[in-house]
């Protein structure tokens, strides 16, 4: 009776999918000359997946809005760049230390979350993003200021990760690892506590869950994922600057989680892939196709398509960003009906 309880997770196709992820570059290489360009886009998506999976734990599962995740990514990227290039730590060590540092930052940012909620928390984390940007500029001896910082290539146990091809395998190995860990987290006591906090703080407390502790924990875990993504970002892009990590990126992360479906790890993965590929590949592709028929100023079409996506969101989410947050909080309560409304 107990056996096969995890059938619903459909574990069987996961190994197939993982093999497909590793075979993909070879397929791509045989299909197109410009495989490196496409790989790079997938690499961006891979790094972002690690981050959005963590963001989903915070915003999707725990119901705590964050508009500061670009800043967490920035802290991760800069910390690792400084640890490896200036202090001389090995890359492998930075992969462990940096996420912990960023996790601690998340922990600290989590303090306001104990008192404020929703959009206000969003605004607070957004403010945090601006502060981080200014701090990076202020510590210019370490960070190179606003001019940015060139970062060394990753060396992994003596093997240098040289190009997009190598990057792909490193990034996706870690992304798969991140997804597995995230799944484990949300399917454990921790994940249950997070969801209980999201859906009913009372039930959570009555079950013995310390709200403060677990909210902070959620921020810590989310920060760790972002920090991990930051390390990979820095050492695969080889250049970081404050212009990378603006508020728009934070909003995009939220959109990725939202598009994929809040509160589902696989949703975050799909949403991230969708948005990154859309932005960098499909829209330019459409653009090229369209320009044969109508004259478009370059850039116009992208604005149009993103406008359209946003419009669709606004139609289904008329309250915009606030609605996005609301949606996160009540999504599960109205799906497929709202028990509260029906029974009280």
């Amino acid at each position: 009776m107990i056996k096969g309880r995890y059938d619903d997770e459909n574990l069987k196709w996961i190994p197939v999918l993982i093999i497909a992820v590793y075979l993909f570059p070879f397929l791509l290489k045989s299909a197109t000359f410009s495989y490196k360009y496409y790989l790079y886009i997938f690499n961006i998506a891979g790094v972002y997946i690690i981050l959005t999976v963590g963001l989903d734990i915070l915003s999707g599962f725990t119901g705590l809005m964050s508009l500061g995740h670009a800043a967490f990514l920035a802290i991760g990227a800069y910390t690792s760049a400084i640890l490896v290039d200036q202090i001389g730590l090995p890359f492998e060590l930075s992969l462990i230390i940096t996420p912990i540092i960023v996790g601690i930052c998340g922990f600290v940012i989590g303090f306001p979350a104990l008192r404020i909620e929703g959009m206000y928390l969003g605004l607070t984390t957004m403010g945090f993003g601006f502060i981080v940007k200014r701090l990076i500029i202020a510590f210019r001896e370490w960070t190179g200021g606003a001019g940015g910082l060139h970062v060394s290539k990753a060396t992994f146990f003596g093997y240098t990760i040289r190009n997009d091809w190598d990057n792909y395998f490193m990034i996706y190995t870690f992304a798969i690892l991140a997804i597995i860990i995230a799944r484990r987290i949300v399917k454990s006591k921790l994940g249950r506590a997070f969801m209980a906090i999201r859906d009913s703080e009372q039930a959570a407390q009555a079950s013995g869950i310390n709200l403060a502790k677990y909210k902070m924990m959620s921020f810590f875990i989310s920060g760790m994922f972002a920090g991990f993504a930051g390390v990979l970002f820095a050492h695969t892009n080889h250049f970081i600057s404050t212009d990378h990590f603006d508020i728009l990126l934070s909003i995009f992360f939220i959109v990725m989680v939202l598009v994929g479906g809040v509160g589902s790890i696989y949703g975050a993965v799909l949403g991230t892939l969708f948005i990154v590929l859309m932005e960098n590949m499909f829209i330019p592709l459409f653009e090229d196709g369209m320009s044969q028929f109508v004259h478009l100023e370059a850039g116009e079409f992208q604005v149009f398509i993103f406008g359209l996506i946003m419009l669709l969101f606004i139609i289904f989410q008329p309250q915009g960003l606030y609605g996005m947050w609301l949606k996160m909080r009540i999504y599960w309560k109205i799906f497929p009906f709202n028990p509260k409304k029906r029974f009280t």
Partner: peptide
């Protein structure tokens, strides 16, 4: 060929890779 980077370094890299690897 003109590509767009919206003053974002990440997008600049994407654009540069497209121009160099894809458009050659």
């Amino acid at each position: 060929i003109v590509e767009d980077h919206q003053y974002n370094p990440q997008k600049a890299v994407v654009a540069a890779k497209k121009l160099i690897e894809k458009d050659q």
